[in-house]
Design a binder for these strands. Structure first.
Length: 253
DNA sequence: ATGGTCGGACCCCGA
């Protein structure tokens, strides 16, 4: 089963790029963040005609998440945790695997209201996974975490020491969530690879490969022996009019 | 090189 996670930065602005990617790569499950569309306007047909069941939880202008699956979506639900009514989470069971798709808050500036909202969001997600006893089951928590956990996950750890996405408090929040037993699929498969999933639109960051690895696929221990491969597909990031994030791909046997 | 990011909703905000 091939699963991808992708922050597309508006599903409507990126619809052709997403459709082309799906046609070329045939993922079984697609987890999207930042759809930026209310549910009434979700472009569901694009995915239905390609054989996907679709579930989504969106709002006007900001946030929004979606799950598409070729193997059905059971017990799908959004708004898993309290998040100021911001549509940032959606979950479903696919082939007996529980998949949680999450768009973690950006955080803006250190010490501000949105920064604490971000740290709280990590705690709430940890509590949710524990409360639902998901870590003991076949479970994947994936999405845009807006945190690069280690020095190898950013292009310059000295320069970025006080930048959003790589501050100590955020990295601690990420580690605290992972500490319940989650496994970073990309890092397990590529222990020494410096790879990024996001590059700022500004300053030619992609051309200079000045990025951060903030999109993650975390699996429960029950899936570790089924993990065939995990990689970041930089291809779509090269396109004109594309998202500032690249898809992360995982293959589960 | 006398500019240098996007999208969405509005003429700014959030990322």
């Amino acid at each position: 089963m091939k699963i991808i996670t992708w922050n597309v930065n508006s599903i409507r602005a990126r619809l052709e790029i997403i459709a082309n990617y799906i046609d070329a790569n045939s993922p079984d499950v697609v987890a999207i963040q930042e759809t930026k569309v209310v549910d009434e306007d979700f472009p569901i047909e694009t995915f239905k005609v390609r054989g996907y069941d679709v579930a989504f939880s969106g709002q006007k202008a900001y946030n929004g998440v979606a799950l598409m699956s070729k193997f059905g979506l059971e017990n799908s639900k959004g708004n898993l945790i309290d998040s100021n009514n911001e549509k940032r989470t959606i979950q479903a069971q696919i082939n007996d695997i529980t998949i949680i798709n999450a768009y973690f808050p950006h955080g803006r500036l250190k010490g501000g209201e949105r920064f604490f909202f971000k740290l709280e969001f990590f705690k709430k997600m940890k509590n949710y996974v524990e409360k639902e006893s998901l870590i003991q089951k076949r479970m994947i928590l994936l999405g845009d975490f807006n945190v690069a956990p280690e020095e190898i996950d950013v292009w310059d750890h000295i320069l970025l020491g006080n930048s959003i996405g790589f501050m100590d408090e955020e990295r601690d929040a990420f580690r605290d969530l992972v500490s319940i037993g989650l496994i970073d699929a990309f890092r397990l498969k590529h222990p020494n690879e410096r790879a990024f999933s996001w590059w700022d639109y500004r300053d030619g960051s992609f051309r200079k490969n000045e990025g951060m690895r903030i999109d993650h696929i975390l699996i429960s221990p029950a899936l570790q022996s089924n993990l065939a491969e995990c990689f970041i597909d930089k291809g779509p990031r090269k396109l004109k009019g594309t998202s500032d994030h690249a898809p992360v791909v995982v293959e589960i046997k």
